[in-house]
Design a binder for these strands. Structure first.
Lengths: 232, 232
DNA sequence: ACCTGAACACCGTTCAAGT
DNA sequence: ACCTGAACACCGTTCAAGT
């Protein structure tokens, strides 16, 4: 739940009063702000008002806004990736982990874009590690380990980013996400059939689809690909 | 090369002088700005200076900054997706199309993030359409068409987004991208071996890898998955 | 129809000054 | 060591006024 991005920050032995500012409290307030008003809602002014302090105080605890966003993202990802996953086989666990991330991003859409903007950072690494261990258990060849996790991770980040963009776009237009997708589908149906035959014919499926099911279908596609590489 | 995002904008019969403002000229200048100074470089002030006009003039031609970014993105994507692709079989063409997008994003990193932020919009649809047609040629079952393009597209967007984030992060630290990845690799090697065994052992591969090769490996993984679904 | 440019309502970040 | 809050250097966007 609480994650230090900086190190060497031990809070002595004596207990301070609840109101004291701390990275944890800042991150907590940031998450609340992000959840309620999206990525645009996280500003140092809104944050310092919520924490009854000035913007400068926050800068004492964290270096920049992007660090703050990554710290908030990491709090969610850590919580998600530390939770136990049901499933016995490596493939089942990978499916479970993937769905857990999907659901976390679904609940906190801003995590999708924050994750994509922090390459190589802790939040990404947590996912990389847990999926990687299962790939190893699956028996993926050593030289294939990196390209394989990398591919799975990219896919997950891609879906997460789309998810974030969809909800952002939707609430910009005052719609919920499924209404927004309905509208996209309607636009696609107006496209010139000679130029965009595939898009048109698939527009209906866009309308009736289930994001979560499609996401899992993609994971399964990749898992089948991994299997078929292993067995040759 | 030139794409109208608004409609009904015919420029009469008479030719205006070169200096006249137009969506095309604005998009062209935007691309130059984005290429030279990244996503942060595109501001209405810098743009209006370059075009020797005021910010208000630009707003007469385009509705908002995000529309402008999408229009610039679409100019690149359209050019990329309209180019002929070598390859005879559907799989070869999908590989070629994917590489073409990868290379375009590599050359214009900002396209990676612009693409991700424009769900359902024209740039994405261009990619969707061309890949979708090849999936159809491949014989993918009608009910699998949507989840399959969707998965390929998410993967491509995911890699593109990472690519964009890497170069953005790198130039923020005054490094080039491979030096930046070296640094990430060094950080990973410092992680606790008990908590992050996989990440540590894979850090070396991160250092010596080739983004483009890894990207293609992911595409091949998915293509194998598609094949194996078809043959059962 | 198209352009000008000042003005508005914000941002992230810094920093002297306080305790 | 930690906090305050004014100030700086920006943003995107609007809009009366011009041609």
């Amino acid at each position: 739940m609480s994650v230090k991005m900086k190190q060497g920050k031990k809070t002595g032995g004596t207990q301070r009063r609840e109101e004291t500012l701390s990275l944890d409290r800042i991150v907590e307030a940031s998450i609340a702000l992000l959840d309620s008003s999206g990525a645009k809602g996280l500003t140092f002014r809104a944050l310092s008002e919520r924490l009854a302090t000035g913007p400068g105080a926050i800068y004492w605890h964290i270096g920049s806004k992007s660090e703050l966003l990554t710290a908030a993202c990491d709090a969610i990802v850590a919580q998600t990736m530390n939770a136990p996953v049901e499933g016995k086989t490596p493939t089942a666990i990978i499916r479970g982990l993937s769905l857990a991330i999907f659901d976390a991003i679904d609940e906190h859409p801003w995590v999708g874009s924050a994750l994509a903007r922090a390459p190589g950072q802790l939040p990404m690494v947590r996912i990389l590690e847990r999926i990687g261990q299962q790939l190893r258990a699956l028996g993926v060849a050593a030289e294939d380990e990196w390209p394989t996790v990398s591919a799975l991770l990219s896919y997950i980040l891609g879906v997460g980013g789309q998810n974030a963009a969809n909800t952002h776009f939707a609430q910009e237009q005052g719609l919920d996400r499924s209404n927004f997708l309905d509208e996209v589908s309607a636009v696609w149906l107006q496209f010139n059939p000679d130029e965009y035959p595939f898009t048109r014919s698939v527009a209906g499926q866009l309308r009736s689809h289930d994001d979560r099911v499609d996401f899992l279908a993609g994971i399964d596609l990749m898992l089948r690909g991994i299997e078929s590489a292993r067995s040759r």
